[in-house]
């Protein structure tokens, strides 16, 4: 208990010192930041403004020894600077720079009293490390949250089932298909067939460069499941690599209806549905 009290006592002294030299230390810190070419995405004024509030939150966290306010501030800061393209190493770098700047000033102040310096550092270092940790973790968590959000958005965007004519659906697939996405695509397609009463479905995989054996098998199963619902599936835009994969797994070509490109697929679908598209006049 006595040790704890002493440590708080020392931290209070430390905080007083940091408050007193606020302007000078802050400027030194900002100078170090631009010297090491961190935060290049931000202007000098912005860096200075952010540095001021980081400095104050830092001192406050040292004083109160609670990190919630700092955590909230770090999250808020991350939210603002992540869209500007600030990297993790920059955030960690500036917090560590601040730690170094403050440690130097402590050395300068207590250089005559080595014992006291030692004790001050004993109190300062754990707190400073925890602050650095909190800020870095806050930044990374915020980044991960943003990434998760974007992943979700992409996933929702990536599976449109479109009706182009009465009873004709198109399912354009773009990008990498993993087993999870394949399952989602199948579910959406089968549901789409039911709700739109589709007779023909064109699955266009021009935008898919390659697929592994599992996903290729899944594609074949999707075609068969659609047939059980009474819909014919036409697959278009198979790349040579995917064709190779399908041949390797030994797909029954009698079940797979394939056409070279999307246009050909739609034309065949229209024939199956009994449509005939005719030009009314020569294009001008």
């Amino acid at each position: 208990m006595a040790k704890r009290d002493e440590s708080s006592e020392l931290l209070r002294e430390l905080v007083a010192h940091l408050r007193q030299n606020r302007t000078q230390l802050r400027e030194e810190w900002v100078a170090r930041i631009s010297e090491t070419r961190l935060l290049t995405a931000m202007t000098k004024e912005e860096i200075f403004a952010e540095a001021t509030s980081v400095y104050d939150s830092y001192v406050e966290a040292l004083e109160t020894e609670t990190f919630e306010a700092l955590q909230a501030y770090a999250r808020n800061l991350s939210e603002r600077i992540i869209p500007r393209g600030v990297e993790t190493h920059e955030v960690v770098g500036i917090v560590l720079l601040l730690r170094d700047v403050l440690a130097r000033s402590l050395f300068a102040k207590y250089q005559t009293d080595f014992k006291k310096l030692n004790r001050i550092l004993d109190a300062y270092e754990p707190a400073a490390n925890r602050i650095a940790n909190t800020v870095a973790v806050g930044f990374v968590q915020e980044r991960e949250r943003v990434i998760r959000q974007q992943q979700e958005a992409i996933r929702e965007l990536s599976t449109p089932v479109l009706q182009v004519r009465e009873r004709l659906l198109i399912l354009p697939i773009i990008g990498v298909i993993d087993p999870q996405r394949a399952r989602q695509l199948t579910e959406q397609l089968l549901r789409g067939i039911r709700t739109n009463r589709a007779k023909v479905v064109v699955i266009d995989i021009t935008g898919v460069a390659a697929m592994d054996v599992t996903v290729a098998n899944h594609l074949v199963q999707t075609v068969e499941a659609s047939r059980l619902l009474g819909a014919t599936v036409i697959v278009t835009g198979l790349s040579p690599e995917i064709a190779q994969t399908l041949v390797t797994i030994g797909v029954d070509l009698g079940k797979m209806n394939t056409v070279g490109d999307l246009q050909g697929g739609i034309e065949q679908a229209e024939r199956l549905l009994g449509y005939k598209v005719a030009a009314l006049a020569e294009p001008s």
Binding site: E187, R191, A225, R227, L228, L229, G230
Partner: peptide
């Protein structure tokens, strides 16, 4: 739809039978 997909996963594809 769910039954259809479960069927093809089990390899029960009703080949040669018309479906609607």
């Amino acid at each position: 739809p769910e039954v259809a997909f479960a069927m093809v996963q089990l390899g029960l594809t009703l080949e040669g039978v018309a479906t609607a």
